[in-house]
Computed example of a mutant assay.
Amino acid sequence: MNRTRNPLWRTFVELRGNPRACVRTEPLWGLSMALVLPYASVFMLALGLHDQQIGFLATVAMLSQVVFGLAGGIITDRLGRRATTAWFDVIAWVIPCLLWAFAENFWFFLAASLVNGALQVTQNSWDCLMVEDAERGQLTRIYSLVKVAADCSALFAPLAAVLVAQLGLEPAVRILYINAAVVMTAKIVWLYLWSRETRQGRVRMAATRGQSVWRLLAGYRGALGLLLRSRGSLLALAVAALTAAVTLVNATFWQVVASQHLHVPDALLPFFPMVRSVLSVIFFFTLIPLLTTAVDLRRATL
């Protein structure tokens, strides 16, 4: 593969400023949360939780995300993209990881699920931080690089598998959660030091300074009216809700089914998402560029 001709490689090399900071710190996700997430549900089972409790926790986590998501725009405008991303990454990931690492019963997991919902705030602020000062023509490739970084994180799965095989599920997962808290902290600090507040972020911070939270919340009424009057937006919202529900159920119970019903050894659980991610990365750097080039050539001949 010619790296100089591949658009993703070229974009990766040419990125500057906040987009570079966001893209190049994203692989640390693979050394933190990606190592432990394949074991999350079976870890709960090992500590004595039941399927119904796991489902309840997933529901609580989703409702928490809805609440934090509604407040995410206001928080991001008030604090700025950079500070919001840093503070709420700590709230959404570092604190829950420590709760999970030292969990003894259902209540630890409930507290972690409630706090973990703050990920919707940092998802909003992180997206703004990454793209607001980026060149418009690079946006698709920037998000593609983020997707590739997330997929590449699955390549570290054998590390978790070895740890589980050597130490057993419960002690290994506790270690992985502590590792996730440490690595995520490093990611947060690194991103904060590498990034700068966006131009739009400074504008919104100035515009919202001195305004009450209630007044800012009132701004949602206009957006809600536009949403309700748009059939396309309602359809997109319905599709997004169904997709989120399916993703939630799959992410929560696939591990349980594989481990308890298909009798897949715990150490092998991360290899299934790893294979899927490897195939995704291969397609991103081979098939997708070829298809894009073919479409561009076809348009040029019309």
Rank of each mutant, 00 (worst) to 15 (best):
S230I: 02
L37C: 01
Y143M: 07
T185D: 13
F285N: 01
T11M: 05
L98Q: 02
D151C: 09
R82W: 01
I54S: 08
A244G: 06
V13M: 08
R136Y: 13
L269I: 07
T85V: 08
R82G: 00
R81A: 03
E26C: 09
A161D: 03
V246H: 00
I91C: 12
S280Y: 02
W194A: 13
V249G: 03
N6D: 15
L226M: 10
T247K: 02
Q166R: 11
L287K: 11
R24P: 10
E197L: 12
G168F: 00
T76F: 02
I75W: 04
L159F: 14
A150S: 04
A112K: 06
Q120A: 00
Q123S: 00
L290C: 09
R299N: 14
G30F: 00
A267T: 14
W87G: 00
R202Q: 14
V295G: 14
R202T: 09
L234G: 12
A101F: 03
F102K: 01
V246W: 00
Q211K: 12
R196A: 14
Q260A: 10
A71T: 04
D266E: 15
Y143V: 09
P273H: 05
E26N: 11
T208Q: 14
A251K: 13
G210M: 03
L279N: 00
L159H: 11
H261K: 12
M44Q: 15
T301Y: 05
T292G: 15
T85N: 03
M44G: 13
A40K: 13
A86K: 06
R20F: 05
A103G: 13
H261Q: 14
S212F: 01
I142C: 02
L47E: 04
R196I: 12
M44P: 07
N124S: 10
L37W: 08
D266F: 07
A92Q: 06
V295E: 13
A83D: 07
L169G: 08
A157K: 04
L248C: 14
L302E: 12
L163G: 07
A300L: 07
N250I: 10
G137T: 02
W214A: 06
R199N: 11
M62E: 04
R141P: 01
I178C: 15
S32D: 07
C152M: 10
D89S: 10
F88D: 01
W93F: 13
L155K: 04
L217F: 11
A46H: 05
A112H: 06
V162G: 05
D296Y: 09
L63N: 04
V256Y: 11
R229A: 13
G222Q: 14
A161R: 01
M274W: 04
N2D: 14
Q65P: 00
G117N: 02
F271R: 04
R202Y: 02
A207Q: 10
L63I: 12
T293G: 05
A71I: 03
L217C: 12
T198P: 09
A71Q: 02
L226R: 15
A165S: 01
T76C: 02
G232M: 13
A181W: 02
T208K: 14
A258H: 03
P270Q: 10
V60R: 14
V146D: 10
L45E: 01
D77E: 08
L49S: 07
A241N: 10
D89N: 09
E104V: 05
S113F: 08
R5N: 13
T252H: 02
A251L: 11
